Structures are given as structure tokens and as C-alpha cells.
Simulated assay, not measured.
Amino acid sequence: MSLEPTFRNIRGTFDILPQDGRSEGAHDMPSRAWQHVEQVVREVLERFNFREIRTPILEPTELIARGVGQLTDIVTKEMFAFQRGDTNYVLRPEVTAPVMRAYLQHRLDQQGAVQKLYYIGPCFRAENPQKGRYRQFHQFGVELIGAETPEADAEVIAAMMAVYEAFGLKNLRLRINTLGDAESRPRYREALQAYLRPLADQLTPTSRQRLETNPLRILDTKDERERRLLEGAPRIIDFVDEKGRAHYEAVKAHLQALGIAFEEDPFLVRGLDYYTHTTFELESPDLGAQSALAGGGRYDLLAMDLG
């Protein structure tokens, strides 16, 4: 006689077992495979002279809201947030804002003009679980703080590419774009809204809501009809000043010198409010519909936003 277990892992999470996971609620990769992945990530990033930083899984809600953006999907719909006493907490949905909080709190700038940091660990988002999307997921990333140069942007991208190449991935597609400086993004936002408002009745309900709150997120749409509507939309590069364009051209030149192939995507803006200048995404068509591997960008204003 067999009995069903009383408790199971929460939907959208999974157990990592010592052996291959072939049961409900277990990941297909055993713990030794996860250890190998983490070891490769650490070895590659430390070869680029990045040093590991670890931040708490719990962070102040206000930190994430200010760092990521009050109107982003993460803050409005996807945070696991709760209150104890007078303090509001959140399970971290990403790690860039916590790393910048730690950088400012511990005055890491006094240990060197440029800080090259990497992290690896779990994050949490209240998403609808589906293939490739979990409520607890594992993320690695790097933060290069204190360098304004295009070389720094290219170095971060090169480190990312090196990690995935170390795993033997061949069919990689790197897309890049520029958002310009802090003045460029608001100008582009207004132009995009002006273009889309007359077309609002042809947008999905989600995009109609984003049109007034976070219109740049519409550019991430997977809806084919909306993608056709966006073909005539203004490009952000037309709103970037001469200095911003020069920065972008230098980033491309450095990538070419490193032998890193890329495609320019004029609609690649990313969904987080702190990005300025360079943005990038890496994907592999071999993964199917969930093709994204990594993404990021420069965030010159985040430290100011966090006080």
C-alpha cells in the first residue's frame, strides 16, 4: 500500500536532487550538474577579474521599487512582498539593485575606483509558472561599477559571451542597442506614446495599459499584430545626442575588435527603468520559444536613484 505525501514543493519551484530528477517537482539536472554550472561561471568570471559578492535574499521593498522602477511589471505584479512591524520586505526579484545597495552601504568605492563584482544565486518573481519560468529561479550576473567608458560595456558583454561559450554553446545571437542618456529616454517615451495612441484600439489590453504607464515595454511584445504596428514606430537612436551616439559607436568597435558578432536591434530597450546607454540581450534559437539566455545594460543613474 502506498500513501501520497502530505506536502509538496510550491508550484513554480523545484527540488534539486542528488540523482537525476524524474519525479514531479524535481529538476531534471542533479545537484552535481548544478555544481558544475556554478563552478564554470565562477572560473570564467574570475578569469575576467570579477570578484563574488553575496547579498541577502530579503531586501527592503523600497529599494527594489526605486531601483527597478515603480511602474515596471516586476514591481507592480511580480514581487513577493510582505510586512513585519513597520518594515516592508521583498524576496529579491533581481540582484543589480541589491548589489548597488551593498556597494553604497559598504563604501566599496574606497577600495578602488572600479569595482568588478559577480553574483550567483536564487531570485523570486510571482509569475505564472510555465516552461522556462519559475517563481524561484537562479541567476548569475556581473556588475562593473565606476567606469563610464565604452570599453567597460564591451568587457561585460565579453564576459557574458565567455561564460556561455565555456558551456559549448555555439548558436548564439547577441542583440545590442543604445538608450542614450537620461534625457534621451523621456523624449523617446513621448514620441512612442504619440505614435501609438492613435493605434490604441489595435493593441492588446496589456499594451493599452502600458501605453500610459510604461510604453517602452510594448516594444517587447510577442504579439505578431503589434510587432507589425511597431514597424513604423520611431527609433530611439534618433533621440540620442552626439555624445551618446559616439559612446555606442565605440562599444560596437570594441566588440568587433574582440571578434564578437552582434545584431543591432532598434527596439531593444529592456524592461527596467535604470538602464541608460548600452543595452544587450543574448539568445539561442536552439532553445525554442524561450530563447533568452541573458541580458543587461549600463545603469549610470542607479546609484543616484538609491540616494
Rank of each mutant, 00 (worst) to 15 (best):
M1H: 13
L3W: 04
E4R: 10
P5T: 07
P5N: 11
I10A: 13
R11W: 05
G12E: 02
T13M: 14
D15I: 03
Q19V: 06
S23G: 06
G25T: 06
H27N: 09
D28C: 08
M29P: 01
P30H: 04
P30T: 04
P30C: 12
S31M: 08
W34N: 07
H36W: 13
V41A: 12
V41H: 15
R42F: 08
E43K: 02
V44E: 13
V44I: 13
F48W: 15
F50H: 08
F50N: 07
F50T: 05
T55F: 02
I57P: 00
L58R: 00
E59Y: 02
T61N: 05
E62P: 01
L63K: 02
A65E: 08
A65T: 11
G67T: 00
V68T: 14
V68Y: 01
G69N: 01
I74L: 11
E78T: 09
Q83M: 11
Q83P: 03
R84E: 13
G85V: 09
T87R: 14
N88P: 01
Y89H: 14
V90I: 05
L91E: 06
P93G: 03
V95S: 12
A97F: 05
V99K: 11
A102I: 00
L108E: 02
D109F: 15
A113M: 08
L117Q: 00
P122R: 06
C123R: 07
E127C: 13
Q130M: 06
K131V: 09
F137N: 10
E151L: 15
A152P: 07
A152F: 10
A152L: 09
I157R: 02
A158M: 04
M160A: 09
M161A: 06
A162L: 02
G168E: 03
G168C: 08
L169Q: 05
K170N: 06
K170V: 09
L174V: 05
R175P: 01
I176V: 14
I176K: 07
N177R: 03
N177D: 07
T178S: 15
L179D: 04
L179T: 13
L179Q: 11
D181V: 12
A182H: 05
E183Q: 14
R187H: 13
R189V: 02
E190C: 04
A191H: 00
L192G: 01
A194R: 15
Y195L: 08
A200L: 03
T204G: 03
T204M: 04
L211V: 14
T213P: 03
T213W: 05
P215Q: 14
R217Q: 12
R217H: 10
I218N: 13
T221E: 13
K222R: 15
D223Q: 12
E224A: 15
E226N: 14
R227M: 12
G232R: 10
A233L: 07
P234V: 07
I236N: 03
D238S: 12
F239S: 10
D241V: 11
E242H: 12
A246K: 11
Y248V: 02
E249Q: 15
H254R: 15
G259S: 10
I260F: 00
F262V: 10
E263A: 14
E263M: 11
D265L: 06
F267K: 07
L268Y: 00
G271V: 09
Y275H: 12
H277N: 14
T279L: 04
E281L: 01
Q290F: 06
L293T: 00
A294F: 09
A294P: 01
A294M: 05
G296S: 10
R298W: 08
L302V: 07
L302S: 04
A303G: 09
M304C: 02
M304L: 05
D305Q: 13
G307T: 08
